[in-house]
């Protein structure tokens, strides 16, 4: 039976730490990430409680989050378009773990929201959308699938707390409590 030989030696963490010649190192690299032209405007819009997209003059798609180019047509995008923020939940999950795989005390619900962009081109595959937390829905809504297709809108942070960040939207919440479309 192939493979006939599989070299390699398993070692437990505590044994590895005891080996002579083992090296421990903690890197930290600091960055200042440029948001670029389109996202900078988008972030300023969030501060004002507005969700901005860019319109592609060629395919008439509204791109949210906005980009300076339309990746479908490879042309520069032109006008800014404000969307209401209302939309439908495409998919949603419940996370019981944090970024470094630690258990969370309170699970979080996260989803992809397909945003309404009436009058503009979209298809079943490609759409204007955001990725964010969901509130006002339960773990059971996720499991049963009730949350999928649910109409939602952004819940904004109070004006004085907004920083021009994606977190200026606290979460997306049901448009009308428990409405399922």
């Amino acid at each position: 039976m192939k493979p006939e030989r599989v070299p390699g030696r398993y070692i437990r963490e505590e044994d590895l730490r005891r080996l002579p010649g083992v090296i421990e190192y903690t890197p930290t690299a600091r960055y200042s990430y440029s948001a670029g032209q389109a996202l900078s405007e988008f972030l300023r819009g969030l501060k004002d409680g507005r969700i901005l997209g860019k319109l592609c003059p060629s395919c008439r798609r509204v791109l949210v989050p906005p980009r300076v180019y339309c990746e479908f047509c490879f042309t520069p995008t032109t006008e800014w378009v404000e969307v209401t923020g209302a939309g439908r939940v495409e998919t949603a999950v419940t996370s019981y773990i944090g970024a470094a795989r630690e258990r969370l005390e309170k699970p979080e619900i996260i989803g992809v929201i397909r945003l309404d962009a009436p009058g503009h081109a979209e298809n079943s595959f490609d759409f204007a959308g955001l990725f964010h937390k969901l509130c006002g829905v339960t773990e059971d809504d996720v499991k049963s699938g009730r949350v999928i297709g649910m109409r939602v809108k952004p819940r904004w942070k109070p004006v004085h707390e907004r920083m021009g960040s994606i977190l200026d939207i606290e979460c997306f919440e049901p448009l009308q409590p428990r409405e399922v479309v």
């Binding site: 030696r9 070692i11 963490e13 590895l16 730490r17 080996l19 002579p20 010649g21 083992v22 090296i23 421990e24 190192y25 903690t26 890197p27 930290t28 690299a29 600091r30 960055y31 200042s32 990430y33 440029s34 948001a35 670029g36 032209q37 996202l39 900078s40 405007e41 972030l43 300023r44 470094a100 021009g164 960040s165």
Partner: peptide, 30 residues
Amino acid sequence: DVVHVEGRMETERYIYTPGPVGVKVAEALM
């Protein structure tokens, strides 16, 4: 007009294995 977002890449630590031959080299150094 361009917004910058501060960030930092960090991990608690890396522990690099010396490897089987590396262990012998390390013992010799000691």
